[in-house]
Design a protein around this nucleic acid. Structure first.
Lengths: 208, 208, 208, 208
DNA sequence: GATGAATGAGTCTTCATTCAT
DNA sequence: AATGAATGAAGACTCATTCAT
């Protein structure tokens, strides 16, 4: 794959008609399905177009290049996770266990559709789109970092940037590794428990 | 790239002449250099051969396919890290801070040659060689899991498999993310401190 | 050449535009010309495309792999011969000499464009496509085997499968050998006479 | 395979020492074994040398190129068949059925080691060595053609060259087709009977 | 005589992308 | 807007053959 440097104009054409909106969604749907159920090699523009039931020419009317599809797909997924986790973190739930809810949201978000997400991840990394993945996590870290903003840290002082980085990446990292390795732990309540302990233990340590 | 199912015979020819030994090293060196300094696309057999100053035919006398070079490279790197970390973990150092030494070894091991390692990582993942990466970490986890075997856990009971998984992957995960994102924290003493705290905090939590 | 197991989908793309139809024919024509006039080594995908005046990519839009071109070419030729011979065999010509007509059709069919056909033959054999060649002959044998279906055997009882096999393969075999050896007999009236005698002699013997 | 025009000096070195003789035989043996039991693709110089337990360099000390091995192998096989058939044809056996013996010898000769011989045949054809195969048959035809020389034709006049050609190629052709198609008839007594009838019928017709 | 490391032209095939219709 | 035929650079891999040791 020879990709253009950076495709800033991810969408070549702003869809203004219903038909066009459908088309974009159709492409997304096809791309996601391929990621979910097929070989990684099958993720190529011709195949996506075929699966979407459109011509390759039409596909290129909505995306400037293959990478743009990938990035857009990643953005779309990240957005879902971000929202879910954000809500978990900012809402002081009755039981007061926002870490657990955040962890659960993350696991479901990043590990839910195993195959699709893992492959999306792999391709993105392979194509240099790694930064894209960091965004939602980074954002969450920012929010956690703002004192009092989150019940998680209600009793403590604000975290340093490094601590934030380590905290967020540790959680994400464990989930990602589990996904990549195809670990059996994924989806079990145990790993959820452990991740909560990891967070709590770290925060406790920081408070010392 | 269409890879053969499982490239078990990583080396096609057992080098019997001195010349051959040199050649293998030359290939490794060229491959590593490409990973370090060039585009990911540059990691192709023709280019590797060219950079190594040998013919493509010669390259294929030593490696059955492109993937084998990648795996061999990964193995080679992992081995170094494994040894360093292993030593750190099993040696009861005077100061009694094996976590710190292990963390440092891991950071240097996995994050040392930033680019090269990141790209190796990316390509490996993209090519489905993810399992290969898990091995050294898994092994360390096993050792940490054997009670008393490591000073890290000297005072406690053996960890459960899930705890082990979370502990090792959290550390690895943070380092990996930092590498992938090209984080500025990488290489600073701060992140080392934080990782040690992460470990200690988690272990303390487990002992509760 | 490493061939895919069975290239059942000989045509990769069903041509829907006029342009496409032309292209397929162009490819056939180029392939046939190469077979006719050039080295056997020249029968490679790149060269075929070049000769056809199209890009290699276009070629691969119509044929899944090199072998498919070969098979398609063979089928096309066989079909012609089959039709001609079939007609000769099933038509009770005025002079009542269907053997002669069949023989002539076979000679012209299989020996007409000497070089092209011989090389096609050779490559097909070399690529394991031998079965493909047997089909039309086999079919003719079946028809000859059905009593009364053909004037050739009008006066006799149906042939046994072995006799059918020997009869058809003897005729085909002589023609094929003559082609392969580049025999000067090929195309002379004499060999036609002899083949007719071969058939008649054998059938007479069977009637004894 | 890019072969030299015509390798007239089939053997590069006249073996004068026992060791050398062994080497040539070893190469032949290895080549034959590969033909018999492996993929056609496995018939390459490197593999032959490996199988023969010698170095590729040594192989090239005895054969100027790959084709020479093939031709030599073919010659060797043809020689056996030629001798067997010759003897059958020239010996007036008690029962006076030389056709049968000749046919039997041919079948065993050309169809004996099915796989090996078929592949040898295919490769030879593919490499343009077809002429080589015709020689023994041609020779037999010559002998049959010399009146009185063979009991087969004891009662008749000498055959014309065309008749000879047709007669010999018909028999060879049937056997060859049966081999190539992997026919089940091969090796059965029936096909032997039929071939004898084919010969007798043709000869009878010629005598009319 | 033997060795086997090295060579590299050559072959198939893929796939992102364009553009005339 | 949509189509899809055409493009062609690029890449993995093979194998006959050479030649320095």
């Amino acid at each position: 794959m020879r990709l253009r440097p950076q495709a800033l104009d991810l969408k070549r054409r702003a869809p203004r008609q219903d038909r066009a909106l459908d088309t974009v969604d159709t492409i997304f749907e096809a791309a996601a399905r391929i990621l979910q159920s097929e070989e990684k090699d099958a993720f190529n523009t011709n195949h996506i177009a075929e699966r979407a039931g459109i011509s390759i020419g039409t596909l290129y009317q909505y995306f400037p290049n293959k990478n743009a599809i990938l990035i857009a797909l990643a953005r779309r997924e990240s957005e879902r996770v971000r929202k879910a986790v954000l809500q978990a973190v900012t809402t002081s739930d009755v039981g007061g266990r926002p870490e657990r809810i955040a962890v659960r949201a993350l696991i479901h978000g990043f590990a839910g559709r195993h195959r699709a997400r893992r492959i999306l991840l792999e391709i993105l990394l392979a194509e240099g789109g790694g930064a894209e993945l960091a965004k939602p996590v980074e954002e969450i870290a920012q929010i956690l970092g703002a004192t009092g903003n989150s019940p998680v840290l209600a009793h403590g002082k604000p975290l340093t940037p490094v601590s934030l980085f380590v905290l967020t990446r540790a959680v994400i990292g464990v989930i990602r590794e589990a996904t990549t390795e195809g670990s059996a732990f994924l989806g079990t309540p145990e790993i959820e428990d452990e991740l909560v302990r990891l967070i709590q233990g770290y925060l406790a340590k920081l408070r010392e």
